[in-house]
Amino acid sequence: MIEKKSENLIFNGQQFFYSHHSDTLNCDMEFSVYLPPQSKNKKYPVLYWLSGLTCTAENFTTKSGFQRYAADHGVIVVAPDTSPRGAQVKDIKDEWDIGCGAGFYVNATTNEWDQHFKMYDYITKELPTLIKDNFNCSDKASISGHSMGGHGALICSLKNPGMYQSTSAFSPIVNPVNCPWGQKAFSTYLGEDIELWSAWDSVELIKQGHQVNHLFVDQGLADNFLDNQLKTDALKQACESKKINLELKYRQGYDHSYYYISSFIGEHIKWHAQFLN
């Protein structure tokens, strides 16, 4: 059961926000859905967008301007929240890169966190079922995301061959086992056994033989997090070693913000549409 929170007309399509109770996460969740024009009469494919640290379902929906391009190309766009939330959900006060707003799209296994933080199962199982049951969509889906959400898009695609027609990411955290954000999150959610972390790391998954059909990564060269946290070159090297066709675009002067995302989201949606339609 989903509950409509708001509805707005934009580029002749409908932008919705919904809430529902998630059995996977054991809490209430919110997500946004954009339905392009004529979606009541035609089944459209779905693009899932995963946002980054500190974000909710609103950031991408209200800041990126994706609706113009989703309407043009006939793509439903779904943007979930980045983590479980609510009074009953474990959180760490004054920590922005762990807990609420920072689910990292993994299935937590450590004590207390495992009660709610199962974002991987939510994104790959519960949410797609919810969308198919409630909206007039086709069987085709793709996935994209930003930063922590780019990490999420990559691992969801690599761990589920054939589930997504195409995968893209802006400024993704590609090698979390070797960066401060990832190490903090993985030690919290997965425990101290570092060998278990590789199952949630894009670069490590590719080294293990996981494949993805169509991959497009976008990275701003003025991004303050590029060298220390994102490590884009590690993904490039892994893809080259395993002969994965990675379309990698470096953008001179662009940073980590939604100004950057809004500049190129149209290019990403057009790219996905060739595989979805």
Score class of each variant (00 low, 15 high):
S198L: 03
A153D: 11
Y189H: 13
N107C: 11
T129N: 15
K118T: 05
P172K: 03
V89S: 07
L205S: 04
N178T: 10
E126S: 08
W96R: 10
C100N: 12
I92H: 01
G152I: 09
T82E: 08
G182R: 04
I206F: 10
M148P: 03
G74E: 07
Y120F: 15
N175V: 00
N136V: 05
K132S: 15
Y105R: 04
C137T: 15
I76C: 15
D121L: 04
P128W: 13
G99N: 11
S83K: 01
I92F: 03
A102C: 14
A108V: 06
N136A: 09
P80G: 13
G74C: 11
G74Y: 14
C179V: 06
H73I: 02
D114K: 15
S187Q: 14
E204W: 00
K159T: 04
I131F: 07
D201W: 03
P128T: 12
N178C: 09
I155Q: 05
E126L: 12
S157G: 15
D121M: 03
P84V: 07
F186E: 01
H146Q: 13
N111H: 10
A71P: 02
N160R: 09
A185F: 00
S198H: 12
A108R: 00
G101L: 05
S157K: 02
R85P: 00
K118A: 09
F104I: 04
P80H: 14
D81T: 03
S166Q: 11
T167C: 08
V177D: 05
A141C: 07
Q165F: 01
I123Q: 03
D193M: 04
A199K: 13
W181P: 00
V89Y: 05
V174M: 12
H116V: 07
F170H: 12
D72E: 14
D133V: 01
I143W: 04
H146G: 00
Q88M: 13
E204V: 01
D133G: 04
Q165C: 13
V78K: 02
E195W: 01
P80Q: 14
A199N: 15
D97W: 13
S202T: 01
Q165A: 15
V203H: 08
T129C: 12
P161F: 03
R85L: 10
N136W: 07
I131P: 02
S168N: 08
D97K: 10
S138N: 06
S144M: 14
A141H: 05
L196Q: 15
K90C: 03
V78Q: 06
V75C: 07
L158K: 05
H116W: 11
E126I: 10
A108W: 00
W200L: 04
K184R: 14
W96H: 08
S138L: 08
K184N: 13
L154W: 03
I98A: 11
D121I: 03
F104L: 12
H151Y: 10
I131N: 06
C137I: 15
N134Y: 11
P161W: 04
L196V: 08
G86Y: 07
Y164F: 15
C100Y: 02
Y189E: 10
S198N: 12
I173S: 05
C137F: 04
